[in-house]
Amino acid sequence: MAAVNTSNTDLRIAQRQHHRQQFISRLLLTLVTGAIVFVFIFPIWFWFTASFKTFTGIFQLPPQLLGFETTDTWWSVVIGGRPYVEAVREAVGATAGTGGAGTVGYYTVPFLLNSVFYAVASTLVTLLIATPTAYALSRFTMRGKQNVVFFILSTRFMPAFAAVLPITLIYRALEIDDTRFGLVMAHVLINLPIATLLLKSFFDDVPSELDDAAMVDGCTRFGAFWRIIVRYVAPGMAAAAVLCLIFSWNEFIFSLYLIRIPDLRPVSVTFATFDSSSGGTEWGFLAAAGTAAMIPVFIFILFVQRNLIRGLTLGAVRG
């Protein structure tokens, strides 16, 4: 009896030790991973804190990441729409703007909304075109498939600086320059290759027996695709959507040349005007607007987080 008791206790001790070891190794893992992730997040944290710092505080070395002197000047202008002149007047009592371009024009909300529109619309259009394409590439055997895929990919090869002029000229001829429609389509161009390839590999993961079964049940090929198969690739579509959103959100040079009406600009272009040659760089506004511009995409990512990781498998790993 005693012997059994002892061995039971030993076992428990061993188990506890094992658990503790596991806990410690997981803690170590967390520390290491956390440290690396911190390095990646640090610039954003710095940017975020800078948006609440006084202008001179931004330049302090090493930067104060907590407990610094705060100001709401940047956010109240960028998001609140307060004219900068008023903000300055309040702060220093002078009846003037600064030497910079900072008198008016840092209000960013309308441009954020523009960006949301461009990103969402171009993502939807991209998915609408890419999904059937990807399905077809996945399901049908056809001659030259490899070449078709390579062609789709190759449309991403041309450097933006070379593509933007001819597209501007074409747009002008078609009179769709300076329209939201035109820019959305240009963003579709940027996103279509990656979305198609991503979705295609995802369709590959869905057994084609499912299509056959659906068609035996009386569905047409399109019906099988639209009613049955598309649902299985929803996570893949979420992943593709995130990438499309990010690329559209970040796009700069097409937006700069295809949209020449200031009110229609996305944020990425608006930021470029914050660095002006008639005054210092507006670091405070850049920090506030830059942080603000992360929020919409970030929220979307939070929503689809679960699907994102699953969806990005690119259907690749199969035994």
Binding site: M294, F298, I301
Partner: peptide
């Protein structure tokens, strides 16, 4: 951590350039 690590991608390259 998975969510946070995506953040750099969400920064427009023009803004990331200014930040750095």
């Amino acid at each position: 951590m998975q969510t946070l690590i995506i953040l750099p991608m969400v920064t427009a390259p023009t803004v990331a350039g200014m930040l750095f």
